[in-house]
Design a protein around this nucleic acid. Structure first.
Lengths: 190, 190
DNA sequence: TGTATTTCTTGAAGTAGTTCAAGTTTTTGA
DNA sequence: TCAAAAACTTGAACTACTTCAAGAAATACA
């Protein structure tokens, strides 16, 4: 039932059988329907979400009223607003299911008690966050140095399946260009 | 001597006197001269740097040969390439002192042994990384939604002193516009 | 299965930025 | 202290994108 998350944790740290039992007793999965939100702008985020199956995204609505995707979270990714989570401040983001998605929702109070009982899990979350930060740095590098077409081709080479999986306009905004321009890139009209 | 880092750690977790002693015995500071590098593109990064006093930056050289700053690290910030650090892969980045800077350089092997002796430090590094990731998300939001002039004004309001502290061309590239355009923004010629 | 909704496409007009080049000012460090 | 190096400014020409609007195609789900 919780194989996905337990395997992911054990890629980074070992777990005792008793720790696995404890985790299994504390976790529970929920289904988020396509287009449903787990976080809205202005809310305080006090939950981390682990994607078991499906796809979530974090997005904003820009001043022109257009949605812009900042982050996708697919299988084995954690998604949350860490700033709102840590500072108890209203979130700037929406977090929504792109397709019907199975997540493990871990509330702050539950997580904190788990971390006291399994201190070694701190290391797991440290490494996950450090890698996510590293990936964000690389993302900024790509945004800074590549043209729109290069960003599209690079992403398509790295994640060929994912390009088919989400609506084009979501991917366009993630790569920081307009949906119309994406259409022209794909048609070779640039 | 190590007040800065010990105070910073104790903002997030308590330390025993014995743990403080241990840390003091493992840490050492070094001076990085202005424009000297602690990491070059292509090297494997196996050190984390804590800025005690001064300013470091992480940058790339883009295909046109221009430097673009991805991150500044001032007092009480950690700076490193987490992706190279964790994956043992060649770094895409340069890390350089903007002004003569005092850092605590913590090598991976030393840090790992410290983390075994003071497991609670995992929590400290977890929170630091999670907040850094949160800040990177906000940064991407600003890059996506604000014009060049808005980004400049926003940064200037948030960090008025810092604008004077670093060369304009470094800040321009951090905010993702050209040094020439920055000059025009400041002169009100946009 | 059929229809409402969502997503994608296309062209035309506009613009927020870049690039280049040359001169000026400021800062650095021997 | 002063020469060399680094940083900043300016205008002119250019371009990689955006915005808008309207129609076509694909998809979801009652």
């Amino acid at each position: 039932m919780y194989d996905a998350i337990l395997n992911h944790i054990q890629k980074f740290i070992p777990l005792e059988p008793s720790e696995i039992d404890l985790l299994e007793s504390c976790l529970n999965t929920s289904q988020i329907k396509r287009k449903d939100h787990v976080l809205q702008e202005g809310q305080i985020c006090n939950t981390m979400y682990f994607v078991v199956k499906g796809c979530m995204r974090q997005y904003i609505i820009n001043p022109r009223g257009t949605e812009q995707t900042l982050q996708f979270g697919v299988e084995n990714w954690w998604i949350t607003d860490y700033l709102s989570y840590h500072n108890h401040t209203p979130s700037h983001f929406y977090i929504q299911a792109v397709e019907t998605t199975e997540v493990i929702a871990l509330e702050k109070s539950v997580l904190e008690s788990i971390l006291i009982q399994i201190p070694n899990l701190e290391k797991y979350f440290r490494i996950v966050a450090q890698k996510a930060f590293g990936a964000a740095q690389m993302r900024i590098k790509f945004l800074f140095t590549m043209s729109a077409e290069e960003r599209y081709n690079h992403f398509k080479n790295q994640q060929p399946d994912f390009v088919q999986r989400v609506p084009q306009y979501m991917l366009a905004s993630y790569l920081d260009f307009s949906a119309e321009f994406m259409s022209k890139i794909r048609a070779g009209k640039v």
